[in-house]
Write a protein that binds this DNA or RNA. Structure first.
Length: 854
DNA sequence: AATCTCACG
DNA sequence: ACGTACGTGAGATTA
């Protein structure tokens, strides 16, 4: 069989991959989706075709002859999005690292290179396969030149294959006639003018009949329809030019050595480095050559003998240890570049193993770990020593990641790729990574001015959160059950009524079924559509409720169903044997620096609606204790007032004036005393909107007013408080210039969206830049307050305990005789956590359950 | 696994 | 001409 050569149209495949895949980035924020898609399709095609030679052709960035021609007609092309542009040079480097020849030539487009190579190779008796995303290349098809075009439909990629006869079958014309068809119909994306009024159908018919533009012109009088006949006669010049533009040059002059394109092993060491950097983890196993000699693992040991464990522990040097513990696996300790693991196995049970772990942690010295809070849960692990939590440092340096793993830290900060399957060695790697990453992370924290934030806020907070998780909150299981039963009754009742009124039994929890019943069957006017069907969101249904009583019942059903599934039933599952719920507070989740709460989420317990709010009655203190609840009054607006330096706002807060009323008076130009309820409510919404990064659309949606009115509110607001406008604009400017914004305590929030070519994403980035410093500073202040409140309670030897944080609120289970002292501590440390231009104020509530206390 | 909906600050 | 308020987590349905 003749040798086969595969020719790839680089830009068109890269383009397809870019638009066909969701945005992917490596840890450094570099986009990788186009390269990934290209490599995937490249591997698939090599697998299918098994070519002996391979070449990828790219356009050069300089304008080519044909580009110059279009410019006279259509101006410039749409620019390539930045997210794709940055991938092009790297794509070429990756191909070169894989030993694949890349051809690009000034003055030639990739099409011309491929056309010429296809012609030369098939003359040299080679089989030729062309891979392109562009069907223009079909003009190159012959009996021995095959064109492959990937097509994506319904998420499935299939590759269509065309020899000359397949082109004829599908398009009714031969490959060379295909040029004339395209020339007649034109192609706006390629800036080929074509003949006005001639589309695909007409063009195909003309060429199928006359074989070429020239022959059609010779018979122009007979050409049908008359419109085309006329155009051919009058604008033949346009047709000729179009044909020139549409024709791929197959006789271009450029050097090419076939032997240089020989396809060898593409999984080279050089390529491995690129794949690591791009984080194509699933492709790494394809590399069979041991790419990088990894001698770190040589320093790892697995110890099972108890005597040896003793010896290893005794031999630890006292400086800085890395420690790791994995449930059901064991623990590992790293010391000065070495590491050993003590696995859990028969006969080493957890009971026997834990004391060794605690013994190791009780040695003098400093300790690094990936999740210190988790380690503190083990009985006997000392807290009063120097801990360094690597996950927190990694989070501060980039708070946008979905999860934090020590493998990612090793790759990003130590340039070490860990591809280890053995669980015990993996544990050694973790211990090794955390001990070795400490210094570099400290250095980076210092460089970003976040070392103080780390040392005085994030790291100490670990202990506060662990105290809170250990304390848990008592829940009255019996009352919770009764509450659930009551909801179940209501749900049953409403369900029956909804079925009766719609005349059908369906799953009310299914938005799909509900949409069909409401909008198709009953013909109610539908509002927004989602990508899968009608929207049945509360906002849409509320607009219909006054006119259609059944919709109100659906809304009520939804409310009850939510309360039952998420809260009544949901919370019951988390009540422990001590009658308390011990949730988890997460410190490395949010982009802004807030903490989050999971398993269960205790930060979204209902309060806004009375029926939901009742559930707070099941959260109760121990006998002899009382709840003391403290929340910051308008902390975000106060931070905004501080940042803006606006004298009116600052003095209003100093005088404890009603800020929403003041805003209403200014924005609506009425005397302070004459502000109506509605005006105050609207002004409050504007104040909220400002904190979120105001947009006229968002505000109009929230207030059910027109965009124009919302725009006027906003303009009046900025006129009233010019300092706020200046501050918000400044944040957006800073984010554009630096790529991030910061809080009062130097916490960073990167804003990569501002670089996007997508308008919506960019607008989102602007709102983020305005909101993050405010929300983040509030989070910082609350964290500082929590640490201080918790410490003050403990150092005063009180029995009272901090239980929950809900962003601007702290809940304390206070021993009854300590209530006054606790209130004093809360005032002291929450209101004085930081000194701003405006006072910080808290409101305190007291009660025998959370409902009463708030 | 993705989508929709809805609970909170 | 476009389309969203900022930040979260959980349950139910559907693909």
């Amino acid at each position: 069989m003749a040798d086969k050569i595969l020719l790839i149209d680089g830009h068109s495949i890269l383009n397809r991959a870019f638009y066909g895949l969701p945005p992917l980035t490596n840890g450094k924020g570099f986009h990788t989706n186009a390269i990934y898609g290209f490599i995937t399709i490249l591997l698939k095609t090599i697998e299918e075709e098994k070519p002996s030679y391979l070449t990828v052709a790219f356009d050069r960035s300089e304008p080519t002859f044909r580009h110059k021609m279009y410019k006279e007609y259509k101006g410039t092309r749409k620019p390539m999005p930045e997210e794709l542009r940055e991938q092009v040079p790297v794509m070429k480097e990756v191909l070169q690292a894989m030993g694949i020849t890349v051809v690009e030539q000034a003055g030639l487009e990739a099409d011309d290179i491929i056309g010429t190579l296809a012609r030369r190779c098939s003359s040299a008796d080679k089989e030729v396969v062309v891979l392109s995303g562009d069907k223009d290349l079909l003009q190159l098809a012959t009996d021995t030149v095959k064109i492959k075009i990937p097509k994506t439909s319904k998420g499935q990629t299939t590759i269509e294959e065309y020899y000359a006869k397949d082109v004829k079958d599908k398009y009714q014309v031969t490959p060379s006639e295909f040029i004339d068809v395209k020339a007649l119909m034109g192609d706006s994306s390629d800036n080929i003018p074509g003949l006005p009024g001639v589309g695909e159908k007409t063009a195909t018919k003309i060429i199928a009949t006359y074989q070429s533009i020239e022959n059609a012109y010779a018979h122009r009088a007979e050409v049908k329809p008359p419109r085309a006949s006329k155009m051919l006669d009058e604008r033949y010049d346009l047709a000729v030019l179009s044909k020139e533009l549409a024709t791929i040059n197959v006789t271009a002059d450029f050097p090419f050595e076939l032997e240089g394109a020989k396809l060898n092993n593409i999984f080279t060491e050089e390529a491995y480095v690129y794949f690591q950097d791009l984080q194509f983890k699933n492709l790494l196993p394809k590399f069979t050559v041991a790419p990088i000699v990894n001698d770190i693992a040589k320093k790892f040991r697995v110890i099972t003998d108890e005597k040896e464990i003793q010896t290893a522990l005794a031999n630890l040097k006292n400086d800085c240890f890395g420690v790791a513990y994995q449930k059901d696996i064991g623990f590992a300790i790293s010391d000065q570049g070495e590491a050993f693991a003590v696995p859990l196995n028969n006969p080493m049970t957890e009971m026997l193993l834990l004391p060794y772990f605690v013994q190791a942690l009780s040695k003098p010295g400093k300790f690094c770990a990936f999740d210190v809070k988790k380690l503190l849960k083990f009985h006997g692990v000392p807290r009063d020593k120097s801990w360094f939590d690597v996950s927190l440092a990694a989070y501060l340096l980039n708070p946008l990641k979905n999860d934090y793993t020590f493998q990612d830290v090793a790759q990003e900060h130590l340039d070490l790729v860990i591809d280890e399957q053995d669980p015990e060695l993996l544990l050694c790697y973790e211990a090794y990574t955390v001990s070795n990453a400490k210094e570099i992370l400290r250095k980076k924290l210092k460089e970003t001015q976040m070392d103080e934030l780390y040392d005085t806020v994030e790291m100490p907070l670990v202990f506060t959160l662990e105290d809170m998780e250990e304390a848990g909150i008592k829940v009255d299981a019996i009352t919770l059950k009764e509450y659930g039963d009551k909801l179940a009754l209501g749900i049953e009742q409403l369900q029956a009524e909804i079925y009766a009124e719609t005349g059908e039994e369906f799953n009310i929890n299914s938005p799909k079924q509900m949409g069909e019943i409401l909008f198709d069957k009953l013909g109610l006017p539908h509002g927004k559509k989602t990508k899968t069907g009608y929207s049945t969101a509360a906002g849409v249904l509320e607009k219909l409720a006054p006119e259609y009583p059944v919709v109100s019942k659906i809304l009520e059903y939804r409310q009850l169903a939510k309360l039952k599934s998420t809260y009544a039933d949901g919370l019951a599952n988390y009540i422990g044997s001590d009658g308390r719920i011990h949730g988890t507070f997460n410190q490395t989740i949010t982009a802004t620096g807030r903490i989050s709460s999971t398993e269960p989420n205790l930060q979204n317990i209902p309060i806004r609606m009375e029926l939901g709010r009742l559930i707070r009655k099941v959260f109760i203190p121990e006998p002899g204790y009382t709840f003391v609840d403290a929340d910051y009054s308008q902390i975000e607006l106060r931070i905004l007032a501080h940042y803006s330096g606006d004298e009116q706002l600052i003095s209003a807060y100093k005088e404890a004036e009603d800020i929403h009323r003041l805003t209403a008076a200014k924005v609506f130009h009425v005397p302070f005393e004459e502000v109506t309820e509605l005006q105050r409510r609207n002004a409050k919404a504007v104040n909220f909107g400002i904190v979120y990064g105001i947009s006229a659309h968002g505000l109009s949606e929230d207030l059910s007013i027109t965009r124009k009115e919302a725009q006027e509110y906003i303009e009046n607001y900025f006129q009233t408080y010019p300092g706020i406008k200046k501050f918000l604009d400044g944040q957006v400017e800073k984010a554009k210039a630096d790529g991030y914004v910061t809080t009062l305590f130097h916490r960073r929030r990167p804003v990569p969206e501002l670089k996007s070519s997508n308008f919506n994403l960019r607008s989102f980035g602007e709102r983020v830049a305005m909101n993050a410093p405010i929300q983040g500073t509030a989070a910082d202040i609350m964290k500082i307050a929590m640490i201080q409140v918790n410490e003050a309670i403990k150092s005063a030897g009180l029995k009272s305990r901090l239980l929950l944080q809900v962003h601007d609120e702290l809940l304390i289970e206070a021993y009854e005789s300590e209530v006054e002292q606790v209130k004093e501590i809360l005032h002291q440390h929450m209101e004085r956590a930081v000194t701003l231009e405006v006072p910080l104020v808290i409101d305190i509530g007291i009660g025998h359950n959370w409902y009463e206390a708030k």
